[in-house]
Amino acid sequence: MGAPYRRRHARRRQAEAAMLAPVNWVEERSGLVGGIRYFLFRNVPSDISWAQTLGSAALTAFIVQAVTGVILAMYYKPDPDKAYESIQFITNELTWGWLVRGMHRWGASVFIILLFLHMGRVFLFGAYKYPRELNWLIGVGLLALGMLEGFTGYLLPWDQTSYWATVVGINIQASGPFVGPFLANVLRGGAEIGSETLARFYAIHMLLIPGGLIGLIGLHLYLVMRLGVTSPPWSRKAAGRKRDPEAETRRQGLVEPRSRRGWRSGR
């Protein structure tokens, strides 16, 4: 049994090396593989769980929006004479079109809800405090951009609801002090809401704001990796908590009382 086994073993090693070759090639030239490995195997506080998934849930919803948005852009026509008809076509005729449009539409609401929930969890955990103030500010920018994305996308179906809501929305903009009227004119692209307006909303909705969102999300996640996520404030094992010196000696020293060990933590 010895020789065939050894031969098979050698063959497997060869296959593995062949498979790893491209990975090593990329790693040698970019360090990306190491980056991914760091991302996957970095430590996070031992007491984090569901509450901290809300950020990645928001990211998931954003990815759904990006994918379905690209597909919609292949069929949607940003022209007042064709927009409504193209939306009808996508919803009623295009194969799976209803699913794509529906996911984009409901995904938007889910995204906004998740942003608020995520922000609420960050607030309750006091996770906006030093040194994460900057990431909170980036988050505020993400929330504002997310809502603007909703506002600009709302006009695109070009039906009565979306049209008149936008008329009122832009008028409100125009009633703002100082830059209000100027901004409203830029959005409208003319005296009336028409083809210029639709083209502008479309460009803002599918290029400008998504670009901004992607950039800010990148920064946001970089800071999350760099600074780490916060333990729940009520956790008895919260990372960074103040130690009372006596418990500290007990931990470093010889006895760790059983009652202090979480049954799940393995430590």
Partner: peptide, 19 residues
């Protein structure tokens, strides 16, 4: 969708998205 946008009508409900 609602009816197609028509600047010439005035029977509309200016209602934004829920958020």
């Amino acid at each position: 969708y609602a009816e197609k946008a028509d600047p010439g009508t005035i029977s509309f409900v200016p209602r934004p998205d829920w958020y």
